[in-house]
Design a protein around this nucleic acid. Structure first.
Lengths: 153, 153
DNA sequence: GCTGAAACGTTTACTTG
DNA sequence: CAAGTAAACGTTTCAGC
């Protein structure tokens, strides 16, 4: 399930990740090609799913979402029913930006972006009232040192 | 530093986060307004930095980046010089997608996206050879349950 | 601050080298 | 497989309300 992507494709992806609002002509000249081949490659990568959504990056602070928590979760439940309920809860909560099931002692990690500690506690209370959780550790971010959506292509 | 954003602005942001390649007409009709006011609001939000870069979301699996690690770091060093070196190292490494300085016992958390465990180890060895680190725990993601760049506006 | 329309630029598809 | 081209479409600006 690993798409064939050549060197020119990678250059195009780098440009799109840096700024997807560039015109085809700009991208073409930066990657050393011309409009038509660049356009065809982008279309193909969209079709194969290498390129997904085009989106816009917002500033959380300017929108009053000043608190970012990483939440480490251990649970004693490992049944399918419990897991489904847990996943549904996470997917339904827009403040959960990321959720991963982990290998090892800690079962899940969440990234939660909220207005303040109070808003995090509201989320936390809602979560533990919906699903049984054994142990939760919340790590509060003091400073976002680096933040990128750009994969190393 | 908290921008004034009204209800119509929030609707526009929701649309842009969902799909920034929509035309102004599409966005305008979805949010119940028309082209010009939507365009003026988008421009203002770009100027004030509420809206940042337009980008494209790539599929890490399709690009062969199949391993995602969350790295918990404790250090005994808290001098400015050490910290600068550490930050520079992280910023220079494209596999580090996210890095936060934390409150509490754990000093830093990183999100690292690489091809495989071997590539993670290369990163880890490079990191500890460049800066003194007291304790590192790597959490390997088995499954990405949720992943969004969309903030809850 | 909105509407509508006109000017301008970009995308897309197709034809040709 | 690339370049050129032209029609379709989208964006941006501006005058009038």
């Amino acid at each position: 399930m690993n798409a064939r992507v050549d060197d020119l494709d990678r250059k195009i992806l780098t440009e799109l990740q840096a700024d997807a609002s560039q015109t085809l002509d700009e991208i073409a000249s930066k990657v050393g090609s011309s409009k038509t081949p660049v356009w065809n490659r982008i279309r193909k990568m969209r079709e194969t799913g290498v390129i997904g959504a085009t989106t816009v990056i917002l500033d959380p602070d300017k929108l009053g979402l000043e608190a970012c928590f990483f939440v480490l979760i251990r649970t004693s439940e490992h049944e399918a029913e419990w897991q489904n309920k847990f996943l549904e809860t996470l997917r339904a909560r827009p403040e959960v930006l990321e959720a991963h099931r982990l290998a090892g002692e800690i079962d899940y990690i969440l990234k939660v972006q909220v207005a303040n500690a109070r808003a995090y506690d509201d989320f936390y209370q809602a979560l533990i009232s919906e699903v049984r959780i054994f142990n939760v550790t919340a790590l509060l971010s003091m400073e976002r040192i680096k933040h990128t959506t750009a994969l190393p292509v």
